[in-house]
């Protein structure tokens, strides 16, 4: 894979994907906590998450904690593989050993 995945390549989506990739497989993070970790506005984060969801890279599960709606986010298997492929392609372009 020589070309960089355009879905992940945008700086904001790259940060989102990299952050979600730090979660253990099977774990999800609350939207508010991810927003706090990334320092993005809710609107901006939602926009980029939708693009990642449309590509099948992120899965969002909406639940309620009491009366408060909570959205839980995680990379899908496809998303995690896409992030790994992206890293590999980037290292390849930079001539680093993988």
């Amino acid at each position: 894979m020589d070309e960089l995945d355009p879905v992940i390549h945008a700086a904001a989506r790259l940060k989102i994907t990299a952050s979600l990739a730090t979660l253990a497989a099977g774990d999800r993070i609350a939207f508010a906590r991810l927003q706090e970790l990334l320092g993005m506005t809710a609107g901006n984060l939602s926009t980029h998450l939708r693009k990642l969801e449309d590509a099948g890279y992120v899965e969002a599960v909406k639940t309620h904690q009491g009366r408060t709606p909570v959205t839980w986010l995680a990379l899908t298997r496809t998303g995690r593989r896409a992030f790994e492929d992206y890293m590999e392609a980037l290292r390849g372009l930079l001539g680093e050993s993988v």
Partner: peptide, 9 residues
């Protein structure tokens, strides 16, 4: 681990 749930919980 606040704001995280799943298999590690």
């Amino acid at each position: 681990n606040r704001g995280v749930r799943g298999t590690s919980t």
